[in-house]
Structures are given as structure tokens and as C-alpha cells.
Design a protein around this nucleic acid. Structure first.
Length: 609
DNA sequence: GCAAGGTC
């Protein structure tokens, strides 16, 4: 029996070959420089195995030539135009390898990632292999981590490919293509016809089901900032100077009411309090507190942190992580998982960092008993572990070094202990009003020693006894003003997109880049922080669509959520409740209606310009 | 000249 195994990417093919062969494996090159074929015997199932890989999707979807010319047809018919599925030129060598290998195999075993996209890529692999060997037996290996026990079990107990999931992805692909092409052409051509400056520039005014909600977040925050009017507020500020370690220390007490927006009410309360000029300590609470170490690192968190702490654009961070992964320094950088597998080998990875001049000592400390199992997050994509360093890299420079250092420190911090501190809260009463002050002493820095990105500073306060009374050093009414929210940062935007299911870990950064490239969004430096500001064109597009569609507007995240990732409609396809075609027809119809209205409004607005 | 998803 000869079994052909196909993984989603070369790195997985290599890993599973190593595991299944026990190291006795022969490597054959293919015509594709990235992809190797691995041959070995697998006596557990009396088979000869060949393990190879694709590089993500194998097939491309596009309109036939007759529809490719923008002037060749009304964009509206793209909702119904045929879609050709081809192997693009770049993937021909991969296709050839699969067909050659399939010709002499009895069984095809799909080893793509166990997510929805993986089921679809599996289906693409099957369609190519069947061209060479129509009656090949097809199986699917199901695994949730690249660890020996799981990989052997997957090889020995294969299941069937989940066709409903593969269909759901297929539906999303054609839906996105039709909507993207139709709306993009309509927007661009309408603008070019009416406004000469667009004719000259030949800029594309693209529409995409991920681009527009992304832009929508930027515009929405911009509007909040623009419509903000500051409000005055008043509060009572109370302080006491008291000795601590032979020095006088000022303790600021916070008013329990926070602040109020009516000055006369605050004055009234203040004057009531003045009747008794002494404050009384109601309660002194002392407790041990912890500052939690960071969670295992996902792609989205890496991008947020990279933008916030390292000042690198999310796209840049991901590109660097990808390069370091290729060089063998990092684990796979596209992962949603923030839990480590229980059998994960932390110690040997920590050991590799012990030689580093900056954090080697800390790593040694972990080896010598300081190790604590990392926290468990709530996400597991069942395909990749959290991002971690796989080898020590001593010769990096510039941004590469910054990214590697962050990932390594984050990993070591996660293997350490939470920081420990001691918190004292003093509640007092002054008149009828309550105030409180808090002090903190950091007892054990633990993970903070290797993770300078987190700050936790102690603020000591003098001793207070319950029921004691004192006369405040100052007690006065102070005035303040509410401040406007700030424009979105890239980190904010990554977070919003992630929360709303716009794009995936691997594409969120790309969508942000796209709305910037299209000049819908402008990056603006405010001091050291980069903020995102919508352009006039960006605002115009979003407001225009909001006026047409209101709650189901194209720029709002709901439509995308329903139409692709956590989407209701796709889930129905997945569960077999609806056929792919039925679901597609319903979705297309919805967009067709919006297209007609959008086009009319577009022409109306532009004729006014 | 168009989308979003996977990967190198």
C-alpha cells in the first residue's frame, strides 16, 4: 500500500514525516524549491508513505477573459458571471508534483490544518490528484497538535473530509470575488465618468467586505472625536502629609463620587463636610495582590504589542515574524492559540536561551526551579502552538532584533511566576463624604525582570489605623474637564477587527495596509503615537453607504460577520442545513439590491459635486 | 485596474 500525504505547508510535511518515520526518512526534491517529498515506511499500517505539501490554496478563482476588461460589461452582471477555477502559473510545479505522486498511490491522505480553510484546501488537493488517479481512496488525518501521539493516531485512524466546511469556504470565495469586483468597478467607473481628476489618476476606488468595515471603524472614531464637546466637572480633593521613613509624604485621597458635573452641588457637599474638620479612618484593608504574567502569544496580540510597544506597523511585525520563522528562529507566526499543549517541551526551549547576554540569566533561573506552567488562554485553533522562539538568535539587528527579543521575553515571562505585591487601601470619611487612598509595595518582581514592557511600580503610603482621626492638610474643590477620545491607533484597530471577526490573524494587517494604500485612511504622527485619520474620500464613502444601508450598512462589521467568519449563513452550510448554491443565491440577492441603490446614490451625489 | 483567504 502506498499512501500519499499532503500537508498545507512544507513545515508541517517535514514535522509529520519526522514523527511518523522515527527519523528514517528519505528526502526528494521537487520542481518547487520550497517543497520536498519525504519517503519512509510506516509498518504500523503496512504502508509506504510519501509526505508532501502544498503552499496554502492551490486553486485561483477569477472571471473568464470576456469579463476581465472593465469596459467589456456592466459590473452588475458580475453577480451572475461564470467563475473559472484554475491552477495559477505559480502553483503549476506543485500541481505537477501532486499528480505524479498520486499516479502511483492507493490512498490520498489530507493533512491540511484542521480549520475551515484547511478543509477547503484539502478539497482542492483532492480535485488535482483525481485528475491523475480518479479512483484514489481519500482520507483525512485529524490532529490538533504536532506531537507524536496525536500524529500517529491521526495516521492510523483517519476520518472523512468535512465537505460542508469546504463548501462554506468555496461560497465565501465566490461571494467575495463577485461583490468586490462589481462594487469596485462601479465605484471607480462612476467616479471617473463624472470627475475628471479621477480619470487622470486611474486610482482604484475599491470595495471589499473586509476593507470597508475596517475603514468604518476609523471613520466612526473620527466622528466621535469631531463631535466631542468638553464638559466641566468638579470634585473634592483631599490630602494629608504624614511621615514615612523619616520623610514627609503627601497622600492623595480620591473622592468616592469621582466627579460631578454641577458646581453648586459640589459646593453644597463641600460646605456640609466642613462642619467637622476632622477625617476618620473607616477601614484599612491589606492584602496580597498579583500582577499576572502575560498570556501565550497569538498573532493578533503580537501585532497589537508590536504596534504599541515596538512602534512597528502590524504588517511589518508579521513580515518580520514570517522571515524569522523561515530562518528557524520562531515557531509558526500565524496562530490563534493562546494555550500550550500539556506535553509541550518548555525546558529545552528555555535552555536554548540560557546563553543570551541579556536574558540568559533569567532563563537559567527558570531552569533551576523558577519555571511555572504558562497561563491558559481561551483560544485554540488546533493547528499551531502559541508563538515562541525555537532557537537562540544572537546576530539579529534593527527591527528583526526588536521583534525576536519581544517574542522571547514574552515566552520567558510566560514561563515565570506572576509578580507579587502588597496592597493597602485606606478608606476614610470626611463629613458625610468618603475618600480612599491606595498604596502598593512590589514584593517579588518575578516575570517583570524579563519583561520590561509591563510596568508595575510601588507606591508606598504611611501607616493608618482604623478609627483614627486626622485633620487633612488640604481639602479643596478642584475643577477639571472631560477630554476627547483619541483617534484610533493601529493597535486599537487590530483589536476591533479581531473582536468583530473582520479578517483573520494572517490578513488583518493586510486590510489595514490596503485602506491606507487606497488613501481612505491617513497615518498621522502625534508625538510618538501614530493615529489613523480618515481621508475626505474615506469619510464620503462610509457616510454615503451608511445613509443607504443604515443598520446593515456595508461599512459596518455585522454583514461581514454574517457573511464569512463566525457567520450564520456559512454555519448553516457547514451544518448541511442549506446547500451552498441556495445560500449563495440568497446572499447574492441581498448584495444585488444594495448595488442598485448604491449605484443610484453614487450618481446622484457625484452630479452635485 | 477588482476580493479575501491560504502560503512562500
Amino acid at each position: 500500500m502506498r499512501v500519499l500525504c499532503v500537508a498545507e505547508k512544507p513545515s508541517i510535511a517535514r514535522s509529520i514525516s519526522q514523527i511518523l518515520s522515527g527519523g528514517r526518512v528519505e528526502t526528494r526534491p521537487t520542481q518547487n524549491r520550497f517543497i520536498k517529498n519525504f519517503d519512509f515506511n510506516y509498518p504500523q499500517t503496512n504502508s509506504t508513505f510519501t509526505v508532501t505539501a502544498v503552499a496554502g490554496h492551490l486553486l485561483a478563482h477569477d472571471f473568464p477573459d470576456a469579463y476581465k476588461q472593465w469596459s467589456s460589461c456592466d459590473p452588475f452582471i458580475l453577480f451572475d458571471a461564470p467563475i473559472h477555477v484554475t491552477v495559477p502559473a505559480a502553483n503549476k510545479t506543485i500541481e505537477r508534483n501532486l499528480m505524479t505522486e498520486a499516479r502511483t498511490a492507493n490512498t490520498l491522505m489530507i493533512w491540511t490544518d484542521c480549520d475551515r480553510e484547511g478543509e477547503n484546501i484539502g478539497w482542492e488537493i483532492i480535485s488535482v490528484c483525481r485528475k491523475a488517479r480518479p479512483n484514489i481512496v481519500v482520507k483525512r488525518a485529524r490532529f490538533s497538535a504536532i506531537i507524536p501521539q496525536q500524529i500517529h493516531r491521526a495516521a492510523q485512524h483517519p476520518v472523512e473530509l468535512d465537505e460542508a466546511q469546504a463548501n462554506a469556504v468555496e461560497a465565501r470565495i465566490t461571494l467575495d470575488l463577485r461583490i468586490g469586483a462589481a462594487f469596485t468597478r462601479m465605484q471607480t467607473l462612476t467616479l471617473q465618468n463624472r470627475l475628471p481628476q479621477f480619470r487622470e489618476k486611474r486610482d482604484v476606488v475599491s470595495y471589499g467586505p473586509c476593507q470597508f468595515p475596517t475603514l468604518g471603524f476609523v471613520v466612526s472614531r473620527y466622528n466621535q472625536v469631531k463631535s466631542f464637546t468638553p464638559e466641566d466637572f468638579w470634585y473634592i480633593s483631599l490630602s494629608l502629609e504624614r511621615e514615612l521613613d523619616r520623610e514627609m509624604k503627601k497622600v492623595d485621597f480620591t473622592w468616592r463620587r469621582g466627579h460631578l458635573f454641577e458646581e453648586d452641588v459640589v459646593i453644597e457637599i463641600y460646605e456640609d463636610g466642613m462642619e467637622s474638620p476632622r477625617a476618620r479612618v473607616v477601614k484599612v484593608t491589606k492584602k496580597n495582590v498579583k500582577k499576572w504574567k502575560p498570556l501565550p502569544l497569538t498573532t493578533v496580540e503580537l501585532q497589537k504589542a508590536g504596534s504599541r510597544l515596538l512602534k512597528l506597523a502590524p504588517k511589518k511585525v508579521l513580515d518580520i515574524a514570517e522571515k524569522l520563522y523561515q530562518q528557524g528562529f520562531l515557531s509558526y507566526p500565524r496562530t490563534e492559540t493562546d494555550q500550550y499543549d500539556p506535553q509541550f517541551d518548555f525546558m529545552s526551549l528555555i535552555g536554548k536561551q540560557a546563553v543570551d547576554p541579556a536574558w540568559g540569566r533569567f532563563a537559567q533561573g527558570l531552569q533551576e526551579g523558577g519555571f511555572n506552567a504558562p497561563r491558559q488562554g481561551r483560544n485554540n485553533d488546533k493547528a499551531h502552538p502559541p508563538i515562541h522562539p525555537t532557537a537562540h538568535a544572537g546576530n539579529l539587528a534593527g527591527d528583526d532584533k526588536k521583534v525576536y527579543e519581544f517574542i522571547t521575553r514574552r515566552f520567558l515571562a510566560g514561563c515565570s511566576k506572576d509578580a507579587e505585591g502588597f496592597e493597602t487601601t485606606v478608606d476614610i470619611e470626611y463629613g458625610r463624604e468618603q475618600f480612599c487612598a491606595t498604596g502598593l509595595i512590589v514584593l517579588q518582581r518575578n516575570y517583570l525582570d524579563v519583561y520590561p514592557y509591563d510596568k508595575w511600580s510601588g507606591k508606598e503610603i504611611p501607616d493608618f489605623r482604623e478609627t483614627e482621626e486626622f485633620e487633612p492638610t488640604t481639602c479643596e474643590i478642584k475643577q477639571g474637564q472631560t477630554t476627547s477620545p483619541s483617534l484610533l491607533t493601529e493597535a486599537d484597530l487590530v483589536g476591533l477587527m479581531d473582536k468583530n471577526g473582520i479578517g483573520t490573524d494572517a490578513t488583518i494587517a493586510q486590510h489595514i495596509q490596503t485602506v491606507i494604500d487606497r488613501e481612505y485612511v491617513i497615518e498621522r504622527m502625534d508625538g510618538a503615537t501614530k493615529h489613523l485619520l480618515p481621508s475626505t474620500l474615506g469619510i464620503g464613502l462610509v457616510e454615503g453607504y451608511n445613509e443607504i444601508g443604515f443598520d446593515r450598512s456595508l461599512s459596518k462589521p455585522q454583514l461581514r460577520r454574517e457573511a464569512s467568519t463566525t457567520e450564520r449563513s456559512m454555519v448553516q452550510v457547514c451544518q448541511g442545513e442549506k446547500s451552498k448554491d441556495q445560500m449563495l443565491m440568497e446572499s447574492i440577492e441581498q448584495y444585488r439590491e444594495m448595488y442598485v441603490i448604491a449605484k443610484r446614490e453614487f450618481e446622484k451625489v457625484i452630479s452635485v459635486c
